[in-house]
């Protein structure tokens, strides 16, 4: 891979990590959805670039799914759900933004150390792409555990999934990437429908155990 292609791929993958950080400090659900749409657009660009440099036209399908489904349809539907169901428009956090950001930086550092520690057997691009991808995955995880609203957990999961697609497209010639991205889209569609149908209106206080003891049949 020539120098400039390599740099562009890095730029896009690094952009994804940056946008993941941006998602961590959003206070409003609408803003969060907009940032997520940006995340999906970046993913789509990154995947298209891989499709172009690897001469793998099937990856354009994955890029198109990312663009149409994740950047447009899902944020749009979630916008409507929030409006129609009168969900709290604020992101309820379990841990403060500062602590979460610090933890996020730690996770990024960890994934870089882990991935760059791999031997030279894997080619340099795959290795560094994986470092970015793992960062995005871990930041998505972090977002899922530090949020209480169902909608922001779903957004966290989708950004995590973007990281996985990034990793899969970076592994040269990996089969089933398109199938996996379709499978993920189905999964997400299920969840969004679930949020809507089951009226998961507010939040799940999985952190606040005391309030839940009653539901769990664990109280005397």
């Amino acid at each position: 891979m020539d120098r400039i292609a390599f740099d562009i791929a890095h730029l896009l993958a690094g952009g994804l990590v940056l946008v993941s950080f941006m998602m961590i400090y959003q206070d409003r659900l609408y803003a969060l959805l907009n940032v997520f749409a940006l995340h999906a657009v970046l993913l789509s660009l990154s995947v298209s670039w891989q499709a172009y440099t690897q001469h793998a036209p099937h990856l354009y399908v994955t890029a198109a799914i990312a663009l149409i489904f994740k950047a447009i349809v899902i944020p749009g539907v979630l916008h409507r759900i929030i409006r129609q169901m009168g969900i709290h428009r604020e992101v309820e956090k379990v841990v403060g933004v500062g602590v979460t950001m610090l933890a996020g930086m730690g996770l990024v550092a960890m994934s870089i150390v882990l991935m760059l520690g791999l031997t030279e057997a894997a080619d340099a691009f795959a290795r560094e792409d994986l470092a970015f991808a793992l960062s995005v995955v871990l930041l998505g995880l972090l977002m899922m555990v530090t949020r209480r609203n169902a909608v922001s957990q779903v957004v966290g999961f989708m950004s995590l999934e973007n990281g996985l697609i990034l990793a899969a497209t970076g592994a040269k010639g990996m089969p089933l990437v398109v199938e996996i991205s379709v499978a993920f889209s189905v999964l997400i569609a299920f969840i969004v429908i679930g949020v809507f149908l089951f009226r998961i209106r507010e939040r799940f206080d999985t952190v606040d155990d005391v309030a839940l003891e009653d539901y769990r049949g664990e109280v005397e």
Binding site: A122, A126, V137, L164, G194
Partner: peptide, 24 residues
């Protein structure tokens, strides 16, 4: 769903790594 998806996501990352190890 949330914990299962996290598990499944980590497993996919592992699967991608296995491919990466096998590919050369």
């Amino acid at each position: 769903f949330i914990l299962g998806s996290v598990g499944i996501a980590l497993a996919l990352f592992g699967t991608i790594l296995v491919y990466l190890a096998a590919q050369p």
